[in-house]
Amino acid sequence: MNEVAIAFEGLTKTYTAKGKRVEAVKRLTLTIERGEFFGLLGPNGAGKTTTIGVIAGTVKPTAGSVRVFGLDAVRDYRKVHKLVGVMPQEEALDSWFLNVREILVYSAGYFGLAPREARRRADALLKRFDLWDKRKAEVKELSGGMKRRLMLAKALIHDPEILILDEPTAGADVALRRQLWALMRELNAQGKTILLTTHYLEEAEELCGRVAILDQGELVAVGPPEELTKRVGGDVVEIELDARPAALEAAKGLKALAAKVKAKAGTTLKDGKLVLPGTLEDPAVLETLSELARAGVKIRAIHAHRARLEDVFVELTRGLKA
């Protein structure tokens, strides 16, 4: 029997902004099992940060609930916080007067760790995350990568059961991203349940056992990345259309074509890129290429590849928009 680490039950969050009611999260129901590496995906404004904010103690839900190992995140917030380590998206380091090591030691103290144990854990994390030489430095002396590692170390200081990472690699360069991925994998292998929010689909595909896709606060898909990609078929053909003004004379033809491709399941047309399920040998794909030629639409490039999470994401969050 698998143990549920996090259970969202009809979670709803409504804001009022400039007199308008905005539903940031709409009746989200979802469970994450212990030991999972779970990804919460969605475009900016999809409600990812709001969703995890209820667990972190920064968002008051309007309706529904979140349970962490059966404990209510609002009513039992103190216990829930003890089980969870959160790395927020924004830099939230107590940098005014504390150095790197002190930031970790104080964080440990907020979780009830005695000073000696707090120092021991802080030192161990500083060494593990390659920050030992910077332990007496001020935060402003750290590089972007070092700050990220410090924030991750802070989330781990009390050895939580669940690690929640809100866009941990946003803005990170490739080397840092790979480094953080390796750390996350290692933590998951050690048994930590990880809830990762990201809009880097490659990241989710690389790391997560299951993902949920949120769009405008609504859960639109959940499952292992490979299962979701099957929704658009195993193979995909991407046709890059020539969108130069002269070529757009053919746009009339493209408009007519859009109506036709709409009828084909799993087909998307966005930013001059037509994505079709299937291979180059597929009769439906060949027929579409002929239609494009007949309509006078010039083609810049054709790519055939296995479907990726990105294809699912585009299909589910944007649909067929010319």
């Binding site: 972190a56 920064t58 103190r78 916080h81 003890k82």
Partner: peptide
């Protein structure tokens, strides 16, 4: 500064 998060997300 945002570090109020440290207290809010603690026990």
């Amino acid at each position: 500064q945002g570090n109020i998060f440290d207290f809010l997300s603690s026990p």
